[in-house]
């Protein structure tokens, strides 16, 4: 969780929306989303839909996995609307 917040702060500044779901509290949501592993990070927008599981300890891998890496150098452009990303734990 801390890893995720750090990545979001550092890389996406305010351009994200993050929803955290506790699967123990809301198992039905996990069922609907077909989630197996905790933690699972689901990037819903922008497409494509991506899932990253694990503690996100490797920032570069996370960004690569979410396909957000390409967006970074294009600083001049308006940042893509990343949200909402969902993390389950």
């Amino acid at each position: 969780m801390a890893n995720l917040r750090r990545i979001c702060e550092q890389e996406l500044s305010d351009q994200y929306e993050l929803r955290v779901i506790d699967v123990l509290q809301q198992p039905q949501l996990a069922e609907d989303e077909k989630i197996l592993a905790t933690p699972t990070l689901i990037k819903e927008l922008p497409p494509p839909l991506r899932r990253v599981i694990g503690d996100l300890s490797d920032k570069e891998k996370v960004l690569l996995g979410l396909e957000l890496r390409a967006a970074e150098p294009r600083r001049s452009e308006p940042a893509p609307p990343v949200p909402p990303a969902t993390e389950t734990r």
Binding site: Q28, I35, I53, D55, D58, K61
Partner: peptide
């Protein structure tokens, strides 16, 4: 759905679903 693994994880969500 493409799933990428970064770091360690557990199958707590699955267990929660089964329990549910």
């Amino acid at each position: 759905i493409e799933v990428i693994e970064v770091g360690s994880f557990d199958l707590g969500a699955l267990l929660a679903r089964v329990e549910n």
